[in-house]
Simulated scan of single mutants.
Amino acid sequence: MVDLATHPIARRWPAQHPDRIQLYSFPTPNGVKASIALEEMGLPYEAHRVSLSDTDVKSSEFTALNPNGKIPAIIDPNGPDGPVGLFESGAILVYLAEKSGQFGGATAAQRFEILQWVMFQMGGLGPMFGQMGFFWKFAGKDIDDPRPRERYAGEARRLLGVLDTALQGRDWIAGEYSIADMAIAPWLNALNFYETKEQVGWDDHPNCVAYLERFMARPAVQKGLNIPAREG
């Protein structure tokens, strides 16, 4: 059980509204999953900006909540059995869907269809796209060996093909809008930031293109994409 009043994270990111869900995050593809879900579900929350610098995510205050030192993380003072602290964006999405009774599937079959796509994003889309970004845009781009870039761009292209096929005749990946879309679509949007649309053949995946456009048009998505707001 997590007591917000005495938790180390409250020393660095004090709660102004301790009765609300506390979100500790930054607007990355993983971070915005949580803020978009909270906005879509209409759950009261308070956002705290935790930068990606080691002074924040590796601080003793933050790692007391998430020992893995990654955003996002939450504390819900009104959990099912008392206060709850959670890290890992996929786990947070599942928790919020169950708490709100929204976007998690109305039947057991729907729930597991949604969960399989959440896991698809967690185990495939996110890691592969993230590594692609590192080797195409960030420090990895300076490595002379082209094989890492080719490896991750090729895998990203393959995963887009899986999605494009699954989206044929569907607006949303599990049939109805769900936490699976909140997990997947922010990573598709990251291709803009990584500047790798050409490398993965984005325009060759029309179902993915239309899917991301639908997702980005949602008001809760537009709001959640900038929570917590970047400085400046």
Rank of each mutant, 00 (worst) to 15 (best):
M1Y: 02
V2P: 05
D3I: 09
D3H: 10
L4N: 08
H7S: 09
H7E: 06
A10I: 07
D19T: 12
D19L: 12
R20G: 01
R20H: 09
I21M: 00
F26A: 11
K33W: 00
K33A: 00
I36W: 03
I36C: 02
E39H: 06
E40Y: 01
E40M: 00
V50S: 08
S51W: 07
S51R: 07
S51V: 02
S51G: 07
S53W: 01
T55F: 04
D56Y: 04
D56M: 06
S60R: 07
A64R: 04
L65R: 06
L65H: 08
P67D: 03
N68A: 06
K70Y: 05
A73F: 01
P77N: 01
G82I: 03
P83L: 05
L86Q: 10
F87T: 08
E88R: 03
E88W: 02
G90R: 05
I92A: 09
V94A: 12
V94L: 14
Y95I: 01
L96H: 07
L96I: 07
A97N: 11
K99D: 03
K99R: 15
Q102K: 14
G104V: 09
G105A: 10
A106N: 06
A106M: 01
A109K: 09
R111L: 11
F112D: 13
F112E: 14
I114L: 12
W117T: 14
M119H: 14
M122T: 11
G123M: 05
M128F: 05
M128A: 05
F129Y: 09
F129I: 08
F129L: 10
F129T: 08
G133C: 04
F134A: 05
F138Y: 12
G140H: 08
K141A: 15
I143F: 08
D144C: 03
D145R: 11
P146H: 15
P148F: 06
R151C: 13
R151I: 11
Y152I: 15
A153K: 10
E155Q: 10
R157T: 14
R157H: 11
L159W: 01
L159G: 02
G161S: 07
L163T: 14
D164R: 12
T165D: 02
T165K: 08
G169A: 09
R170K: 10
D171R: 08
D171S: 14
W172D: 14
A174P: 09
G175N: 02
E176F: 07
E176T: 15
E176R: 14
I179C: 13
D181K: 00
M182I: 04
M182H: 00
I184D: 06
A185H: 04
A185S: 07
W187V: 03
L188G: 09
N189S: 08
A190D: 08
A190Q: 13
L191H: 11
E195W: 13
E195F: 13
K197G: 06
E198L: 02
E198Q: 05
Q199D: 15
V200L: 15
G201W: 09
W202I: 13
W202F: 15
V209C: 15
V209S: 14
E213S: 01
E213H: 00
R214P: 15
P219K: 10
A220H: 12
A220M: 12
Q222T: 11
Q222P: 04
K223M: 01
G224L: 13
R230Q: 00
R230S: 00
E231Y: 00
